[in-house]
Design a protein around this nucleic acid. Structure first.
Lengths: 352, 352
DNA sequence: TTGAAAGCGCTAACAT
DNA sequence: ATGTTAGCGCTTTCAA
């Protein structure tokens, strides 16, 4: 028996250490590299016979194209960079879901970077992402470091700032006015006769949107001659438990409060649960409102008043802008989509 | 006045349409491209004088390196592909957060793809991601199409399957045994004397982990001679509201149920809120348990029994495996980390 | 410590 | 319908 003709089993299952190239497919199919490339990209005219030969060879070899080389040669990168502050706040995954929904029916693919609300981190992440030469960039907020703004302007690609419209966008912008959201909630609250109003929000100075809501809120109250009489802040991520604890503290300190405005639904829901557990009459004794329009609220015993921030629509609209701009090379930029924050009154606002 | 010497303001602020290259920096600094490259990557010996000249030029031009070209030339890509079924289920953002936490102190950057629980979509996303030649890949679950498994094996990069350990991993695996999680919960439930047990879960046939928990659960019950007497299923994402509605339906149908096992905390919490609103004695009249160990539960009036799935630790461990494998080129693969699901009894399990 | 040359794997542009 | 050539912007390798 001819032992040296026996192929060892381990080699039979060989994992190619060098990834396959177009050339491998070219050799296997007996067709030029260029034609293989055409078949694999569905470009140009290729005869059916050739196409099938190539596809068969590519499939049987398990060829996976190298997009790095392709992108370098064609100067086209089907990536959209998305920069968000956090994944823990469900708002951002929801935006991403809307965004992916639209991109899914396009050749584009999103790549996500997270900043943890740090402008320095944002700058790093942005630099890193731009170095992959994406076709567009979507980022949360209008506040960026000077260096970040410079990079964005110099990038020459569509830039869409999302979530917030209060400020000067670099290029396109999709979001709501958080100042207006705060103002409208304040007006509704005063309209219902509340006068002793408390605010509960994050300590985070870099959460500009929460800050703007608060500013709009106090500004509108001031017009009615009303001041926020107490405030309570929390660190880190929001949770029902923090909402409970903050609510307990602020009410212990300022028992005469008749309304609590929370900077998001999660802590608002915590406060609501706390008050219901205590047997407090909501909204008879004290009214409540949150922010975001989270689905979570639909399942509570009493529906918390809130304001819809239109998260998934923001994601979808941003994606659409990028797609349009890429489709029409010389379309002008600067699109502006301001969604209207809508109050969802729920059952914690209107006293019957 | 010499009008044709006036530089239009709009041109003064010119946005370079051709992105800058190493050569631009080389010309601006009077140093060879090669040396510029060395400075920007901190490789090799460069005199301080040269270094400063280069950095100054790069900064003032606003040069952003082209990683596509760099990756092609060096055959190194600092990307880790991560493939998850969904962003709507907070479990996955939590895993990503743990993962990014570890990758943050490394040169690696995660890139996320979402499959919507579809094996075909997973295959597409995987192909797309592999074509960027990432340094490693992390994906949820052990169930993949044959083509996906073939691509993963042929990729020659570290592959870490996460969340689940019940099955044959392709390479490394980090997760919990969902069968065991189901079994342990079943044992605890029977230990506390419950006998008329209902199950509430997703319709989704592709949620293998929920399926395995249910299998482990019924298997352990069977050993005690107990059968699940009723089941209720939901479509789409989980929510408190769906939990409420399902709970109402199953109890209307099977009033003698004395325990409800939910396939996740969100619907479990909905059920709990429903029962508390109805004034039902929990767990005196009926016991409840969910799954995941979500932080959400800490803020409910009564803490729901659950089981910790160790989401962020799974993300961190997966990232560490990738980092080790990349650091030590010829380290063997096949790492296996099975975390222990731990019951959190809460206040809806043990009858006092 | 610096530079010059070659080439990574693919595609644009131009033949044929 | 198919092939040939050049080159994308960088890094590797080798030379000075």
């Amino acid at each position: 028996m001819d032992n040296d003709k026996v192929v060892p089993l381990t080699k039979g299952m060989k994992t190619p250490q060098r990834p396959l190239t177009l050339k491998d497919v070219s050799v296997a199919s007996g067709v030029s590299e260029m034609t293989v490339s055409r078949v694999l990209r569905n470009r140009g005219d290729v005869s059916d016979a050739t196409r099938e030969k190539v596809l068969k060879a590519a499939k049987s070899l398990g060829y996976v194209p190298n997009k790095i080389a392709g992108a370098l040669a064609s100067n086209r990168v089907n990536l959209v960079a998305v920069i968000i502050p956090s994944l823990s706040n469900m708002v951002f995954p929801e935006v991403l879901t809307g965004l992916n929904e639209v991109l899914d029916s396009s050749p584009l693919q999103s790549v996500v970077g997270v900043t943890n609300y740090s402008p320095e981190k944002e700058e790093q992440v942005l630099f890193e992402m731009l170095s992959w030469r994406p076709s567009g960039i979507i980022l949360a907020g209008l506040e960026h470091s000077d260096a970040s703004r410079a990079m964005l302007k110099a990038s020459g690609i569509p830039v869409v700032e999302i979530m917030d419209t209060d400020g000067e966008p670099i290029d396109a912008v999709v979001g709501i006015s958080h100042r207006r959201a705060g103002r409208e909630m304040a007006r509704q609250i005063t309209r219902y006769g509340y006068r002793n109003i408390g605010f509960l929000g994050t300590k985070m100075p870099m959460d500009h949107r929460a800050r703007k809501r608060f500013e709009g809120f106090t500004e509108a109250l001031a017009k009615e001659g009303i001041e926020v009489i107490d405030q309570e802040f929390y660190d880190g991520g929001s949770s029902l438990l923090k909402g409970r604890e903050m609510t307990e503290r602020i009410l212990k300190r300022s028992p005469k409060l008749d309304f609590l405005y929370y900077s998001n639904d999660m802590i608002g829901a915590g406060g609501l649960l706390y008050l219901l557990d205590k047997g407090v009459d909501v909204p008879g004794k004290i009214g409540l409102a949150g922010f975001n329009g989270t689905e979570l609220l639909d399942g509570l015993s009493r529906k918390l008043a809130t304001m819809d921030a239109g998260r998934d629509e923001i994601g979808r609209a941003a994606a659409r802008i990028i797609l349009e701009r890429i489709a029409d090379e010389d379309m002008k930029g600067g699109q502006r989509i301001e969604l209207s924050p809508r109050i969802q009154e729920g059952e914690t606002l209107k006293r019957s």
